[in-house]
Design a protein around this nucleic acid. Structure first.
Lengths: 180, 180
DNA sequence: ACTAACATGTAACCCGTTACATGATTAT
DNA sequence: ATAATCATGTAACGGGTTACATGTTAGT
């Protein structure tokens, strides 16, 4: 169970509804963990069944009511304990790499296109990452402890992203040498 | 369905049994795609039901018989067509990053330990990658087309791996500044 | 006698995606 | 009218992990 822990992590500072979690997962923690709203609602129910989250309905004007979840004492303890479990390295499964193993003169142009699209997507993402780093994490040594961890995740994202851009360039050059 | 395509890719050059696939998946394509033997056997059955793979039993001496699978014409066509489908970027979900968001003085030492272990694992893997690159892919421009694709996958693995090592060093330094 | 490698599977469960479903309010 | 945003769900399916199950041969 890992999405559950990601959700609880997002709830460490703020109480949020399922909708807000789904929205925020597209930025912040969502840089490293994505989930559909259906999955989030399901997980929220499971977590509150375990009493790791408390829920309360919030009445709103001009909007549907929402159900806001917050960490319980038990939830905080479970999350803290989970950090101490050891995880095995997870190989990143990526269709693109499998496709590259199938490179031939017929599909080289298509694969170049896919790589170009990925490159652009990564550029956009890096722009965001860098903006966040400059604004909130410019001097990592002086950050409070927990934000040092967030900085490190961001730093990995930035470095890997820059590396990926360089690889895309290398790949596009080599793919251009494939005759069609 | 992506494991199926990874399996078919592995069967492009050689006919293999489920056992051999599971073993080889720990190297080569398995650098980028992992699967348990159970999952592989299941997938092989599905693929041969679709007539994308042919199977034949091979009688062996001193060993149990094995079932060897090979690509059919229809399989090759389906795989070639799949390469042209477009894939969306898949965010690498990694527990370690979620754990880092939970950094505090109590768990900093444990997280350092996890990062150190990952670092060593990556060192070993990079050693393998580099060995393969030096032996078989030293001059990428002159490779036959399909092997250029394999080279690119390997190249991404090497670059991302080296980047990861650098990040581990950065992380270990910053984690050392967390008082306990 | 025991362990490792060879070889193939079933069953239960969990996690995640896709499609479907509903309904209010606000802005164009 | 129409689309976008807010808000929460169900159902079907697919993919993947873990545990369980079986049996041979070769090496120590």
């Amino acid at each position: 169970m890992a999405l559950g822990h990601a959700i609880m992590t997002a709830l460490l500072d703020d109480d949020l509804s399922g909708y807000e979690l789904a929205r925020d997962f597209e930025t912040s923690l969502g840089f490293f963990w994505q989930a559909s709203h259906q999955q989030i609602y399901l997980e929220l129910r499971k977590l509150s069944d375990k009493h790791w989250l408390s829920k309360r309905e919030v009445t709103q004007r001009g909007k549907p009511n929402k159900i806001v979840y917050g960490m319980t004492r038990a939830g905080r303890e479970a999350l803290a304990a989970w950090v101490f479990t050891s995880t095995r390295t997870q190989v990143a499964k990526d269709d693109l790499l499998v496709k590259l193993y199938n490179l031939d003169s017929a599909n080289a142009a298509h694969l170049s296109g896919e790589i170009t699209a990925r490159r652009e997507e990564m550029m956009r993402r890096l722009y965001l990452y860098e903006k966040i780093r400059r604004r909130h994490y410019s001097i990592p040594e002086t950050l409070p402890t927990r934000r040092k961890g967030v900085y490190l995740a961001l730093s990995l994202g930035i470095h890997q992203g820059e590396q990926f851009l360089a690889w895309c360039d290398e790949a596009l050059v080599l793919l251009a040498t494939v005759e069609n």
